[in-house]
Design a binder for these strands. Sequence first.
RNA 1: GGCGCCAUCGUCUAGCGGUUAGGACGUCGCCCUCUCAAGGCGAAGAUCGCGGGUUCGAAUCCCGCUGGCGCUACCA
Length: 489
Amino acid sequence: MTSARPIRVRIAPSPTGDPHVGTAYMALLNLIFARQRGGQFVLRIEDTDRTRFVASSEQMIFDALRWLGLDWDEGPDKGGPFAPYRQSERTPIYLDAVATLLASGHAYHCFCTAERLEAMRRQQAAAKQAPRYDRTCRGLEPAAVAARLAAGEPATIRLAVPPEGSTTFRDQLRGDITFDHHNVDDQVLLKSDGFPTYHLANVVDDHLMQISDVIRAEEWISSTPKHVLLYHAFGWELPRFWHMPLLRNRDKSKISKRKNPVSLIYYRQAGYLPEALINFLGLLGGGMPAAEDAAAEKFSLDDMFARFQFDQIRLGGPVFDLEKLRWLNGLYLRALAPPQFLAAVRAGVFPDAYLAQIAPLVQERIETLGQFLDLTDFFFLDQVAPPPEVFLPKKRTLEETLAVAADLLAALEAAEWEHAALEASLRALAAARQWSAKEVFMLLRALITGKTASPPLLESLLVFGRARSLDRLRRFLEAQAQAPATPKG
RNA sequence: GGCGCCAUCGUCUAGCGGUUAGGACGUCGCCCUCUCAAGGCGAAGAUCGCGGGUUCGAAUCCCGCUGGCGCUACCA
């Protein structure tokens, strides 16, 4: 029933921040799939959410994936037969698709405001009903719609889900999955800002770019019926769906930056070798044949092309275990020839660009070159472990200080990584906690540098990097949670 | 709450009706050794989430339960 068509797969990251380890995982799986079947691997940038858009993100995604050796055949920076590969440059296509849907009755205009929708959901929650669009606008007369549109009233366009029946689709790893239409929401397809939502853009582009196999994370299973409905509405052939297990935190929740370093930038800066990270990712979720000893756990991307088995994938979400990654990384590091190792040290811990940023911070407070490392060691250390004498402000309890440290982590996560924004955020935190700004800055200094004296804090933070700063705070809090410091004196 | 997915040592996994349930990380011990690693050897660690079936026989098949997770946005 499915015609044999060329294998084409894709990853579709959203440029909303640091490149994510989950993106690398999906890229790896897609790349393997494509290489094993002589197919093409496409990179498509899904930048349809203008509120979360981060301009620098796209380039970071390119860099991180290339660093890992997960290169693509077609993409925004390479072009290809289905360009453009950036969704923000494809809006006419989506508008066109939406017009088709409107004409065939598969979609409709919705004039409900965000406020009304919110109120509706609150009511539904209070009545213990499932939060779902109540279809107020679904029955609007065409003339009324035209009039309101003409009057300039903002509108979205929603998918008209059939009121009865159900949609079944085949997941290649799990078999058939059925969703009753009563449980499928009339999803917004086109936002009032004129940009499509994921659901529309993704389906339209997968079809236009002739994607044969959609290999994506498990979190998409519940929206797949909407996608299937769209394919049917357009009369398009369905791709095969492969939903991959989700990477997890230690507590089994979906991997998140709050509980794990998830930024690929972090792994690169913290001195992980791309081969090791790729190897580790390949170990997760089954796929590779069982190892009969430790040496067999080590394998390359080429080994994965040769031996990875998609039908062997385990469906339970694997915990992302840093301990094992570190062990693997050590394996790779120790296997390097001495000149390669030296080169790795230079590139990984003392890159010129990094040193060039650090040097100005200490030049004016230095007397001999020998002091350089004394002043800057925290930039190079894997972690620092300040004792309570260092991080605990006088007249503050350990409990309170740890609470502020947790606030600090949250504040830095939320703040834009830029001097003024960081400073404002720290001062706001101090005010909220009724701490002096000095105390807050001192605490942060202690946690990041491990010392009470350091180069300028904010400047140091900016050079040290967001990913590593957050990780350092997180690890401090984790360590304290496990073995609380005992303040003395 | 609703819907969906999932379920083997702490973690990653092998296992696909008959195994002492295998390997790896981590942990612990011993060896090596000026130290620490690495390396070698070894140990502890899983009544295969629970309860019913099917079967001569179930971690493996079926059902129920429980638990975990995901989705439940004009985010992806």
